[in-house]
């Protein structure tokens, strides 16, 4: 009785969408890194952001 379920599993196609989406965002990340954004992020993140925490 379990055989049909196994067949269904075998026939289910591999979803291609994640393999398109992930490289696109990886490319965005690379462009951001190439423009020097991480240094700016670090510059901001090492300071206490008073307005972020509602103090300024």
């Amino acid at each position: 009785m379990n055989q049909p379920t196994r067949d269904l599993r075998k026939k289910r196609p591999i979803r291609k969408a994640p393999f398109v989406v992930i490289p696109v965002f990886l490319l965005l990340w690379l462009i951001g890194v190439a423009t020097g954004e991480p240094a700016r992020v670090l510059e901001q993140a090492v300071q206490v952001c008073l307005s972020c925490i509602g103090l300024g």
């Binding site: 990886l26 990340w29 991480p38």
Partner: peptide
Amino acid sequence: YFGLSVFGTIG
């Protein structure tokens, strides 16, 4: 600095 590295990471 359009935020691409951050959008890329969380993307």
